[in-house]
Design a protein around this nucleic acid. Sequence first.
DNA 1: CTCCAATTCCTAGCGCTGCTAGATGTGAGA
DNA 2: TCTCACATCTAGCAGCGCTAGGAATTGGAG
Lengths: 190, 190
Amino acid sequence: MSTQARRERERAEREQAIITAARDLALAEGWDAVTTRRLAAEIEYSQPVLYSHFKGKDAIMAAVAVEGFAELANAVAAARASAAGPRQAVADVAAAYVAFAQQRPAIYDAMFTLAVDLPFATQDVPTDLARGFAELSETVRPFVGDGDLETFTETFWSGLHGLVTLMRSGRLRRPGHDRRLAVLVERFSR
Amino acid sequence: MSTQARRERERAEREQAIITAARDLALAEGWDAVTTRRLAAEIEYSQPVLYSHFKGKDAIMAAVAVEGFAELANAVAAARASAAGPRQAVADVAAAYVAFAQQRPAIYDAMFTLAVDLPFATQDVPTDLARGFAELSETVRPFVGDGDLETFTETFWSGLHGLVTLMRSGRLRRPGHDRRLAVLVERFSR
DNA sequence: CTCCAATTCCTAGCGCTGCTAGATGTGAGA
DNA sequence: TCTCACATCTAGCAGCGCTAGGAATTGGAG
């Protein structure tokens, strides 16, 4: 029976190796460079092995995205925890969110732009995603007024997401980024 | 010499046919369905003909995007022109922007998500794109206060873009869309 | 009218992609 | 030790964007 346990453990390790390889390759060279052949070479197995772990390339990207949700939630939580006062918390959280997206653009894309077939309504994805969202909610809660907190949070989040994506795709010039972020923060913290 | 004129005219017509075919196919089935082979079949020429008009598939998508910029600028201008009062203008313009993105998702993607190699700093792209941006600017101008108009406009635009993209990718649920849009408008029109 | 040159267009194919069927080898249980 | 089941690999499919080289058509000169 212990051999079976060892096999399952090795299998789990290999699955993690696939996710890590995909993540590293995407960060270094972008998702276009992440091909099933390169991934297979990276983990030193043949191509079909990937398909015994994941349904397809999209599923691998989804797994990378899931790890990203946890990271982002942690980053936002840390920013909120160390902020001096509620208004500063909004600014710090916004800065942390944008920094995450800019430092890990490929992962951010997997989380919010690509990989549509994520199980958004089930399982463990909402766990970390909802955790990040809850951190955002608590951050802006003091400034909601008499409106709906969830709606307010979603709108603030959309502002951050729009800033990030428009700048990364070249539609907004890099200079001025801090000022735009300041405007957004100011609009949602008073 | 008139034969040459006829040839140039026919060539221009064929180029427009390519753009229109790409646009229609993308709207109907998404950009993944727009392959050079299907486009060639649509215009009833062989594949290489496409490359005598455009550098590659990306350039065709860029051409579709350029047409989209004009459409979007017109939609925004119309909304602003018919609005009753400056505060209502912000709401109407925002609604028109979002409606455009939702009714022509593939074109919106070509404009703002894909097709990175657009000549953003030259030629006629900025013409219509800048026209749309200028309409946005004029709409929010009464509410800038003592800040920078361009920065303010860009931030408002980012909010709209974020709402559109997050909802289209399933990260925001469709119900609540109107309320989120209302929150954004309220934050940028007071 | 004929011939040549230039242009236009197509056939065929390259290297790549995600993905899979069928063969091959390996290891556990009788 | 033998057998069977499972894990893994080799080889290949259909499709992608893109291009080289040849065929056909066209326009102008003699």
